[in-house]
Design a protein around this nucleic acid. Structure first.
Lengths: 216, 216
DNA sequence: GGACACATGAATGCATGTATACACGAACGT
DNA sequence: ACGTTCGTGTATACATGCATTCATGTGTCC
């Protein structure tokens, strides 16, 4: 692990968790000192975070984390919706052609269903996320996968909103079941539609929770 | 313009044009010498190109441009299709709500139609591209726009294929007319569908031309 | 009193020396 | 002769000093 990669992940965590507060002004130098690396690897990490718009630069002022916004969440979710629809469609195609094995996706989903029984919302959310990440690999579409990864990194800042609606866990799993079935059957279009519905349904909840938290 | 940004664009051009040949091995140091910058800004540019998968690194060996492939072109085009569908849909929405002005898109398209008359294929392609870039701005969806920009940068390597089918220019413009009309009317779904058809139709041609050029 | 120009300090872009890590080949041992 | 290990060279990750750029505040001129 390089120092640049390490500090990237640390910063990502700090931003996602809110530990690095929105609108607090930082400089590369202070961040380098805080994370005990020189400015070179830190700059590298900051550049990547700027690409993801998790940090924005005010020329000659410094860096800041932009505040959460309904608008950004909506845009990220809409982008995620079309990209994951494509991932699901590609995955169904590849499975149908015998170009990819679906075992891991099945395993993850089975674990998801088991976890529902033990009432551990945090774990359920985490396994639910694994489902989407495995689907990204399964799609075999590197271009879509790269975009999807970036969008999800941005979306992570809003993920904690899901904790506000624990009663949704059963529905999430049910929607995953439907997506998995379509992929197993090689029905690309059905998989795409089911996935888009799934993401859109999640967005509705997020909008509701978020609207109670911010003005925007 | 920073040195890093400048060398990024130069490298991008060299890769896109084929001047930097696929599979030729380079090192950061040689590239820095060639472009007359120090290793620091060059590294910065190389990092960005790696993110775009326009350069791949062989550990401790160097950097190389991956060869064109049917698979990559297909993946890029499929990703482009869903993203631009979303951009068109967002743009139609924003125009309908009076949140964005469509004038520039109209102007670009009018110029496109005029250019068809003077038989300059290169210029027609270029103005056709402007249409897609203006649409990106018009969408107001920063997340989708960022993904789209990345995908198009990757797709640039395949763009010269369009020169092989000059007779398509009229059809491109006709499809743009349809997309523009849907956006002007605020019909988001119609705009999305028209755009997806447009991208998919282009892909068919690219597949045909490319299949005659590479084994893959 | 307002606007513009310049001085100043901070932030970061850039250059370069050094440390580290890895591939490859050679040489030795089995 | 083949496999393993160690030497060597190369590629790049990192640290740090210097150059450049820009925001801000002050003073002067109109």
């Amino acid at each position: 692990m390089t120092a640049a990669e390490l500090v990237f992940r640390q910063l990502l965590g700090a931003i996602t968790s809110g530990e690095l507060a929105p609108d607090a002004m930082e400089t590369e130098e202070r961040l380098a000192a805080r994370y005990k690396v020189s400015r070179t690897p830190l700059r590298d990490a900051v550049r990547r975070l700027e690409q993801l718009r998790l940090l924005v630069r005010e020329p000659a002022r410094g860096l800041r984390v932009p505040p959460l916004s309904m608008r950004e969440m909506h845009d990220l979710s809409a982008t995620r919706e079309v990209l994951e629809g494509l991932l699901a469609s590609c995955a169904a195609d590849r499975v149908a052609r015998g170009m990819a094995r679906i075992d891991r996706l099945r395993d993850i989903h089975a674990r998801h269903l088991r976890v529902l029984g033990i009432n551990d919302p945090e774990l359920a959310l985490s396994v639910g996320f694994d489902f989407h990440e495995e689907l990204r690999r399964l799609s075999g579409n590197e271009s879509a996968a790269a975009c999807h990864e970036q969008v999800l990194l941005g979306f992570d800042r809003y993920r904690h909103l899901a904790r506000a609606v624990p009663e949704r866990h059963d529905r999430i799993a049910a929607e995953h079941t439907e997506i998995l079935a379509a992929i197993e059957a090689g029905r690309a279009q059905a998989a795409e539609i089911a996935m888009r519905r799934h993401i859109a349904a999640g967005r509705e909840l997020y909008v509701e929770v978020l609207s109670r938290m911010i003005s925007d």
